[in-house]
Design a protein around this nucleic acid. Structure first.
Lengths: 206, 206
DNA sequence: GACTATCTGTAGCGATCGCTACAGATTGGA
DNA sequence: TCCAATCTGTAGCGATCGCTACAGATAGTC
């Protein structure tokens, strides 16, 4: 077999393979031997290219957010109203979480739920990402209340938590085998609770 | 130290201790040494009294459903309308998932999310329990549609999945640090999407 | 009070974990 | 063409995993 010289494997393809394994089995449920088998490299190559398991996972999560999870960042960047933003977040989750081309659900939600004390840092890392998203959504909702898009008595914290909970629940349901069609129905039901200014035409509801 | 004779430890107290550890760290994230430390027994006593780690976990889950998770079974047993049932499931989750007297969230939802291939059976065991609950709720909703409690065009599958997703999302949010007050707000928002017969007085909405 | 049965504590089993030392193989530069 | 540098594969490190053999200690029986 070919040994040495410049790197012989595709770093991004290896990251993609690692992503799918972490997505399916979570951080602690994935072993180095599983990773090296999926990435088609040997342990020393993995450690030379990515550092250690922890650093590889962080790189995987960052890449995930820029690829599979991109619809979230895009929604935050492109939607100017809280109503449009929430609609796109929820329906995007419904659309993507049960696609057959990758493991079900959201990697950031599902990949570090069970963690031994030794892996607590990884749980915290993902929880921080989830909570940052929720806080960002809350601030966008607060903006919408100030601008008059949403009623003045709207509970920004509660509403943001509700939206994030629905998305996380859809991720779990996708993991439990629910298909895209049902997730879409869930998303539409979730959006019916959205507060609308009585005299406003800002709502997206059909 | 005292050795031997009849069993010297309280079996149920040991189960309770094991419950809290599994609840916090999940199945694969909990080691035998953690369990024996929390249960204040040594490995041979654990294996003599409970079989192995897997059997202990199953016993823990059954006991959990009869204690901490009892509000779910009670709601199914005591509520006669789908509306009342769903109200009690969601508000019960909101009330209990962030209590400070035990780990946050629901053990059945959180304890086997990350699993290596060797622990796949445990994931399936909990997924089956979750899906059985969802299917039971769906059948109760279908009954309510037939009886006229809910509109005839109600999507029983979608609605049951929505309710279960909200509950699972609340569990995740509790794990991420959200308090009871916010969970209550989430539950009330979730119930606003409940379909009501226009001419009926069956709704519980405030 | 010896005997049997049962439980407990110590110690350690084989397997796997994340990770790495080492040497063989191949490349680019001199 | 030979060297220095770099990557790869083999093999195995110490630690921990789930689990158990073994022997010491206590209880009930006669």
């Amino acid at each position: 077999m070919a040994r040495s010289g410049p790197r012989t494997f595709d770093r991004d393809a290896a990251l993609e393979a690692a992503t799918l394994v972490f997505w399916e089995h979570g951080y602690s449920g994935t072993s180095i031997s599983q990773l090296t088998a999926a990435m088609k490299i040997n342990p020393p190559s993995l450690y030379a290219a990515f550092g250690d398991k922890r650093a590889l996972f962080t790189e995987v999560v960052n890449r995930y957010n820029a690829t599979y999870g991109r619809f979230m960042a895009d929604a935050f960047a492109e939607e100017t109203t809280a109503t449009g933003l929430v609609h796109r977040l929820i329906m995007g989750a419904a659309e993507h979480y049960a696609e057959g081309s990758h493991p079900p659900g959201c990697l950031v939600i599902a990949a570090a739920a069970n963690n031994s004390p030794g892996n607590a840092e990884v749980s915290i890392e993902l929880a921080d990402r989830r909570n940052a998203n929720r806080d960002l959504l809350q601030s966008r909702i607060a903006d919408a209340i100030r601008s008059g898009e949403l009623p003045a008595d709207t509970d920004a914290r509660g509403l943001a938590t509700y939206v994030v909970a629905v998305i996380q629940g859809m991720s779990q349901q996708a993991r439990d085998g629910v298909n895209t069609e049902t997730l879409m129905a869930v998303g539409e039901m979730a959006l019916r609770t959205w507060p609308v200014q009585p005299m406003s035409a800002a709502g997206r509801r059909g």
